[in-house]
């Protein structure tokens, strides 16, 4: 069995950090996918630049958050890999 040359406790620490990051990302994802649209009625009372805020989040705001979230995840996860010394060469 070819192994990755990574000690078990390093692998475990790496996975713990990876999981923690996963939960943080999924929490933010959940808020902008569901929670915020649940309050669309209340948010629509606020109008910014012509946009009722509830509509804005479904049409644009959540999408922007998703894009940022993907790039931020890639950045954070790559850092975790490097810190644990398991990144690709």
């Amino acid at each position: 069995m070819a192994d990755t040359g990574v000690a078990p406790e390093v692998a475990r620490r790496h996975w713990e950090k990876t999981k923690a990051l996963m939960w943080v990302i999924l929490l933010i994802w959940f808020i902008f996918s569901f929670v915020i649209h649940f309050f669309v009625g209340a948010l629509n009372e606020i109008v910014v630049f012509g946009f009722p805020l509830g509509w804005y989040f479904a049409a644009q705001g959540s999408l922007i958050v998703f894009v940022i979230l993907c790039f931020w995840f890639a950045h954070r996860q790559n850092r975790i890999d490097e810190e644990c010394g398991v990144a690709e060469d």
């Binding site: 996918s33 479904a58 894009v67 979230l69």
Partner: peptide
């Protein structure tokens, strides 16, 4: 109208799952 924005949200937010859970 608004109800169709489910497609806009759904067809973009899925990529967060792709990035975090599966693709790498």
């Amino acid at each position: 109208g608004y109800s169709y924005l489910a497609f806009v949200v759904g067809w973009t937010g899925g990529y967060v799952l792709v990035a975090v859970l599966i693709a790498p």
